[in-house]
Design a protein around this nucleic acid. Structure first.
Length: 892
RNA sequence: GGGCGAUUAGCUCAGUCGGUUAGAGCGCCACGCUCACAUCGUGGAGGUCACUGGUUCGAGUCCAGUAUCGCCCA
């Protein structure tokens, strides 16, 4: 075995082996219990990001853990066609050839996207494999597969037939660059600095003005009214009068509407029904006309007037402001910060745009999703997301599902010349009402999330009642980033109830958001997202997985940098070397099988490590059950490194170096191998590759089954032994005290020290005497002498007090008295402060009266222990002064 | 404007039921390549638990308010 762990070859080897042996595949199995997770399908355009790494590592941990717990586990993988994102990518490649999708035509363009998908759509899947994800690749799905497309159509038609899908002319979020409508959830708000312009609108036939304030002056070309609050006394007399819209000379009324906030601007607002959602509402109430002054690409159209026609919206704004200034109608300009909507996909500022779109009535669907959380059928981890989720559902708006794109599921609505429109599951041959054959399908496609919200059951074959659906549905856990809680998670819950009659998953775990060290969200556009495949090549997939898990606390963001992966890399190396050490001392043939009889041979260290191991098993499983992944990772990290390696392996070295005939040697070898084996199992969900490698080397003589399907370790309550752990911690403290003296007194490592221990406590003395070997070995001690009557050596020596035992380390010729006095002084100071704290509490009558007896007793014990230790230290400090003093006198 | 979260060592974070003498990793300092590991070991330094009040015998932990930062929604 190499001295340094080299993940490259090992990772590739085992992934191939797992796949070839079908270890990821699962099928309905009435003998076993199902455990299911569906992957949040990455976009086909996607490249693996550090966010994917976190998300998919956590899913893999759950899946591998449950698989070892003997569940029939299905991790359903696949990709999302990602309407706008993918169309944009392919349009960009076309643009490089100087072509547009319109030149190609719809059919050719869609064909082109399919070609692109065949070629590049699998990249992220390969990257997930590199990460070690144990998805059932035989079941890989794509949202535009035939089966999933059928599900989309079925869902649409069902909702349509129930009257939950309708078409209407409303103001929607419009991206002038993508030239499509978007849902509210796809628009991203950003605070931006802009201006608030105050513009005078003259009254008809009067020499008076009304001043309105606006952040978007160019839309005034489409104004059809000015509105004021009905309770605003400033404007009471003006309501009903007519204004002349500047630059356009259109006559528009002044209306009163509760919606207007008298505090905003001048209290009078311009009303542009075709270009503002609030104004659209006002117009509805007052029967105002809607005038669209923009084209789909946000240039001004002929209704904006010949002066402005053809100009971009911002160009128009500049010219228009200049014109107003010339006419002295621009009263003032204020700095103003307000929220601006941007396209989630391309960042372009969205335009509220009046157009015909398809919507889903979401209120009836939301009711189920609300109840699911309130009744506890659906649980969130961490729980605080419940509020966010409920708030959205309780205020839900109808969902705009039509997109003016070419890539996606075409809306299954047909129009007949007779005026009939209908939705059908199969492409129709004729109009069901008039029999006409001249039918046209709706040109638009569906929002990409309209297929994603069906994902938990469409991937299993719905609407057919497949064995998979019956067995694996509903799924157990959803692991997702919180930024798609509305776009995806909440909608899946709605769809689950609507189409399957139950919640699609039991638990939802929201992952941490990954940020860089400056706190910015990792994103492609910022260029601060490292390439995880490079990190895996450098450090290994296991290292990256473990680091991400360890660094991601439940419910908080995680700050990532490549350097942090050294944590995982170093841990891999530690595991590798511990294993190397164990292998060099493996039980000989025939010794390997554990027998019950061995327990008689166990010594303190053995019983201790077994106790600690079983505590780790218990707490690790508990943490995973509560989705506390970082806690689970910490647990096994601390156990393996700081208990197994730092203490146990060091403690048993003398026994290992003896011949196997010696007492304790055999049990040490067996036990060290056993603990390593169980540790590998506990670590396997986190670090699948290195654990598989070591597992096979450990079980070389067996038939080579995978650690993946080995049974998850169970906590053996019998092995947990509090008194053993207490004894061991006394010894550890003892050893550390001697090491401390050695280090502080600069005793060279190769020089063995003598140690004397004085104590009246029989038990602690026996503990020291019985385990002398541990101390001499780990603290590099030559002669250890312990007893109730041990005399402090006359020569110079360093002292410490551990649990009432006085420890003397004679240091003839070595001691630096000043240093020792300083060291003891520090210790005395520390203990004095503690003692004061305990005393204060015990002198407090209220404490004695009101605190539980248990606590008071404990406090008394602590106080007396502390006092005894302190007294002993003080005595030793004084002796030191005396010796020093007499020496000082001699020198004189 | 409403909601959520955070504030603990130089940095990143743990801290369960209020009983704590506040922990870890990284970084720092000292010593050491001791026959698994220098991607390591041993030891050490480093804290007014954001602030102000309150509840309590006892508060990092519970309550109220303030400040700063982040996110979501309008």
């Amino acid at each position: 075995m190499e001295k340094v762990y080299n993940p490259g070859i090992i990772e590739a080897k085992w992934y191939k082996w797992w796949e070839e042996n079908g270890l990821f595949h699962s099928r309905p199995n009435s003998e076993g219990r199902p455990y299911t997770i569906v992957i949040p399908p990455p976009n086909v355009t996607g490249m693996l990001t550090i966010g994917h790494v976190l998300n998919n590592t956590l899913q893999d941990i759950l899946i591998r853990w449950k698989r070892m717990e003997d569940y029939e586990t299905l991790w359903m993988p696949g990709t999302d066609h990602a309407g706008i994102a993918t169309q944009n990518v392919v349009e960009q490649t076309l643009a490089k050839e100087g072509k547009t999708r319109h030149q190609l035509g719809r059919e050719k363009f869609v064909e082109k996207i399919w070609q692109w998908k065949q070629k590049y759509g699998g990249i992220i899947i390969q990257q997930l494999k590199m990460l070690g994800c144990s998805c059932d690749w035989e079941r890989e799905r794509f949202t535009m597969d035939e089966v999933l497309s059928r599900a989309v159509r079925e869902a649409f038609v069902q909702l349509y037939e129930k009257g939950l899908i309708y078409r209407g002319k409303y103001i929607v979020n419009w991206c002038p660059r993508c030239q499509t409508a978007l849902s509210d959830e796809e628009s991203v708000h950003q605070e931006e600095k802009g201006s608030l312009w105050h513009i005078k609108y003259p009254l008809k036939d009067e020499d008076k003005y009304v001043t309105v304030a606006t952040t978007r002056p160019e839309t005034m070309l489409g104004d059809t009214a000015v509105a004021v609050n009905p309770n605003d006394e400033r404007y009471l007399a003006l309501v009903g009068k007519i204004l002349i819209l500047p630059l356009v000379d259109r006559e528009i009324p002044i209306v009163a509407d509760e919606f207007v906030d008298p505090e905003f601007g001048t209290g009078a607002v311009k009303v542009t029904p075709a270009h503002d959602p609030d104004d659209f509402e006002i117009a509805g109430r007052h029967k105002l006309p809607q005038i669209m002054v923009m084209n789909k690409d946000a240039t001004m159209n002929e209704l904006a007037g010949s002066e402005y026609e053809g100009m971009d919206r911002y160009q128009c704004r500049e010219k228009l402001l200049g014109d107003l200034r010339t006419q002295e109608l621009l009263v003032k300009t204020e700095d103003y910060t307000y929220s601006v909507s941007h396209c989630e996909r391309c960042g372009t500022v969205l335009e509220p745009y009046l157009s015909d779109q398809w919507f889903v009535k979401t209120k009836p669907l939301a009711a189920w999703a609300i109840e699911a959380v309130q009744t506890g059928q659906l649980r969130f981890f961490p729980g605080h997301w419940v509020k966010t989720y409920l708030h959205w559902l309780e205020n839900i708006k109808d969902w705009c599902i039509s997109r003016q794109l070419w890539w996606g599921h075409r809306i299954p609505i047909w129009y007949c010349q007779c005026g009939h429109q209908f939705a059908v599951r199969e492409d129709p041959q004729e109009c069901p009402r008039c029999g006409g054959k001249n039918l046209a399908q709706d040109e638009d496609v569906l929002d990409t999330w309209f297929s994603s919200w069906l994902w938990p059951f469409s991937t299993m074959g719905w609407p057919q009642n497949t064995p998979e659906l019956r067995y694996f549905y509903p799924t157990n856990a959803l692991v997702t980033a919180p930024d798609i809680i509305f776009l995806w998670a909440a909608r899946m819950v709605m769809a689950g109830y609507e189409f399957m009659g139950e919640c699609p998953f039991r638990d939802v775990y929201f992952t941490s958001l990954v940020r860089d060290l400056q706190g910015s969200k990792m994103s492609k556009s910022l260029g601060n997202s490292p390439d995880p495949t490079q990190v895996m090549k450098q450090f290994g997939a296991d290292a990256l997985r473990f680091t991400m898990t360890m660094l991601s606390p439940q419910g908080q963001d995680v700050y990532y940098s490549n350097e942090k992966v050294e944590l995982g890399r170093n841990f891999c190396n530690k595991i590798w070397n511990a294993a190397r050490f164990v292998f060099s001392n493996l039980p000989e043939k025939g010794e390997g099988k554990e027998t019950k009889a061995e327990s008689g041979e166990l010594e303190l260290a053995d019983r201790w490590i077994l106790s600690r191991l079983n505590q780790a098993v218990r707490s690790l499983s508990n943490s995973l059950r509560e989705y506390r992944f970082n806690e689970a990772a910490h647990c096994i990290y601390d156990f393996f490194w700081h208990e197994y390696c730092d203490w146990y392996l060091e403690l048993i070295k003398p026994r290992l170096y003896q011949s196997s005939a010696e007492k304790g040697s055999k049990s040490a070898r067996q036990l060290t191998a056993k603990v390593l084996r169980v540790s590998m199992q506990l670590l396997h969900p986190f670090m699948p590759f290195i654990t598989e490698e070591i597992w096979h080397r450990l079980n070389a003589e067996e038939n080579g089954t995978s650690i993946m399907v080995s049974p998850w370790p169970q906590c053996d309550q019998q092995a947990i032994n509090e008194s053993v752990e207490r004894d061991m911690s006394v010894l550890q403290e003892f050893i550390v005290a001697i090491r401390n003296i050695r280090a502080e007194m600069n005793i060279p490592p190769d020089r063995k020290a003598d140690v004397m221990v004085r104590s009246s406590g029989k038990e602690s003395l026996r503990l020291i005497q019985d385990n002398e070997g541990y101390i001499t070995n780990l603290a590099k001690v030559q002669n250890l002498c312990a007893g109730p009557e041990v005399n402090k050596p006359h020569q110079h020596c360093a002292t410490a007090v551990v649990k009432g035992m006085e420890v003397f380390v004679p240091l003839a010729g070595l001691i630096d008295s000043d240093r020792e006095r300083e060291r003891l002084g520090r210790e005395v100071e520390r203990l004095s402060e503690q003692l004061e704290c305990f005393s204060g509490r015990l002198e407090d009558g209220n404490f004695l009266k009101k605190a539980p007896a248990e606590v008071v007793k404990k406090e008394r014990q602590k106080h007396s222990d502390c006092r005894k230790n302190l007294e002993k230290l003080l005595v030793n400090l004084r002796t030191l002064d005396r010796v020093q003093g007499s020496r000082g006198a001699e020198k004189k």
